[in-house]
Design a protein around this nucleic acid. Sequence first.
DNA 1: GCTCTCGTTCACATCTTCTTCACGGGCCGA
DNA 2: TCGGCCCGTGAAGAAGATGTGAACGAGAGC
Lengths: 118, 118
Amino acid sequence: MQTGSTQFVRVGELEIRPREGLVLARGRVLTLSVREFDLLVALAGHAGRIVSREELYRQAWGGTLRGGDRSCDVYVHKLRAKLERALPGQRFIHTHVGFGYRLDTGASHPFHTASTGR
Amino acid sequence: MQTGSTQFVRVGELEIRPREGLVLARGRVLTLSVREFDLLVALAGHAGRIVSREELYRQAWGGTLRGGDRSCDVYVHKLRAKLERALPGQRFIHTHVGFGYRLDTGASHPFHTASTGR
DNA sequence: GCTCTCGTTCACATCTTCTTCACGGGCCGA
DNA sequence: TCGGCCCGTGAAGAAGATGTGAACGAGAGC
């Protein structure tokens, strides 16, 4: 992954610092496990775009996603829970059924959610 | 969804990214199901020209359209609904009775709603 | 050894999507 | 006018995908 090049990624009130292994939510440190962090970094590396489970698995776990492996989904869930607790009411990780997940940059929102546009 | 070479296709205010499974309408993310997306990609691949149901089915579903199969029509309907909600007042998918469907740039003739524009 | 955290996997719940059917309207030729 | 064809559209059920809580074992630190 190209985390080497990025100093940090800002997604709304989230600030991800791949090189430091640190995530800040509204300035406060967010405690993530290694997998959770890697997954978030993988998502953030393609922020705004849909990332397939295969790609996420490759980047966060390494190796190839085996059929039936739900690790990815489970960790998306854990990540969502922690993000929700840190920044209630905001949805960062969006599901695209059949495609994968997408980290919302805050710049583009799906249509069914009438929330802050720009 | 495996639409090979193109990075993305622009049709009016629609931006289709075949490789990512993502569609943007005026910059905002449009959530489509796999079939809807494939259908749109198939239409966009021939933008401005009429595409027969057989051809659409071949590209979006794979295999041959069986007589009496209305899947294509149903999904054109679903797609139209989502596009209408995303970009109200614009008609992208036009019906050509007896021939098929055609994806329009949406810029040319917005009005003319009297009857089905055939 | 004990405890805690983490990663994985399972089972079940819930939500989406896909397919097919059914009904109705417009159009056209007989 | 009648009947057939074509298409629009809503709905229902099945199939599939994802969400979610919990159990289990492995390691690390105490």
